[in-house]
Amino acid sequence: MFRLKRSEPVPVDLPSLPVPPPSTHTVTNVPIEERHTERAHVTPTREPYEAERREAELVHRYRRALDLDGQVVSRLRVVPAGESAPIYSDLWNETTGELVEAKGTVTRDALRMAVGQLLDYGRFVDSKRYAVLVPTRPRDDLLAFLAAAGVTAIYSDGARCTRAEP
């Protein structure tokens, strides 16, 4: 058995707990997330599988296209009032005021999630347009859903990006 004894007093000057979350929201532009790997090995239930970072690849390809067009892009770091954890957008086109959320699939669930995320981030910035960046053209019913929500679909059409405006 060990018994620890303090050798001398340790001065500690820490803030009182709990640290209160901010009373107003903050928004800052931050660089787009760097992609250092395309795949990650995940072991959620002891059965490993490979998860591709499709969204990051989509964002980086689209970013390169916007850079070539001379547009300024970043992401938004938003800390909502009353919360301490930030939320991040996938892409913020500073030139056009377009807020973009990327999804690695074109399922109904993914697109519904994207619309909700865009509406959440959009409350904190003067966004002129919303767009969802996806790997392929969504089916007609999902394009109609995005159009009803006022959201543009951006998808790969060979070597270029195609926009399905609402």
Rank of each mutant, 00 (worst) to 15 (best):
E50S: 08
R46H: 09
Y130V: 00
D157I: 04
M113E: 14
E55I: 03
E94R: 11
V59T: 14
Y62M: 05
K128N: 11
G150L: 06
G104M: 03
Q71H: 11
V100P: 00
A114S: 05
E38M: 14
S16E: 15
Y155K: 05
R63A: 09
E38S: 14
L58P: 05
R75C: 06
P135W: 07
E101A: 05
S84V: 06
R160E: 14
A148M: 12
P22A: 06
A40I: 15
S127E: 10
T43W: 14
H36C: 10
V27M: 04
S127T: 14
S84L: 09
D13F: 09
R123Q: 15
T43C: 10
L91A: 03
L143T: 03
R75Q: 10
T37P: 02
H41L: 15
P15T: 15
Y88T: 02
R112C: 02
S156R: 14
D67I: 07
A131W: 04
L111R: 02
D109H: 14
R61S: 12
R61L: 15
P138Q: 03
A131H: 03
V106H: 08
I32V: 13
E83P: 01
P86D: 09
Y121I: 04
D90F: 04
V106K: 04
R64C: 13
Y62A: 03
E94V: 15
V134N: 01
D140Q: 13
G104Q: 05
L58I: 09
Q71E: 14
N29V: 05
H25E: 07
D126R: 14
A40F: 08
L91K: 01
F145I: 05
R39D: 10
I32R: 10
I154F: 00
R54L: 15
V132H: 01
S16A: 15
A159S: 06
R46T: 09
D141E: 13
G122E: 03
D67C: 10
E57R: 12
L143A: 08
S74F: 04
P138L: 01
D69L: 10
A149K: 06
V72N: 11
C161D: 12
R39H: 13
L66E: 05
R53I: 11
V115D: 00
L68K: 15
N29P: 00
A153Y: 00
D141K: 12
T43R: 07
E38P: 02
A148V: 09
E34H: 14
R39Q: 10
C161M: 07
R61W: 10
H36E: 08
R123I: 09
V151T: 01
L66C: 13
E52S: 08
V19R: 13
T152G: 00
A110M: 06
V73A: 11
E38K: 12
Q71T: 01
H36S: 08
S156T: 13
R63K: 12
V27H: 03
L17K: 08
V59S: 01
D120Q: 11
T107W: 07
D67A: 13
V79F: 02
Y62F: 11
V72E: 15
A149G: 00
P44H: 08
V134I: 12
D13S: 13
V27Q: 06
E50Y: 09
H36T: 10
L14W: 07
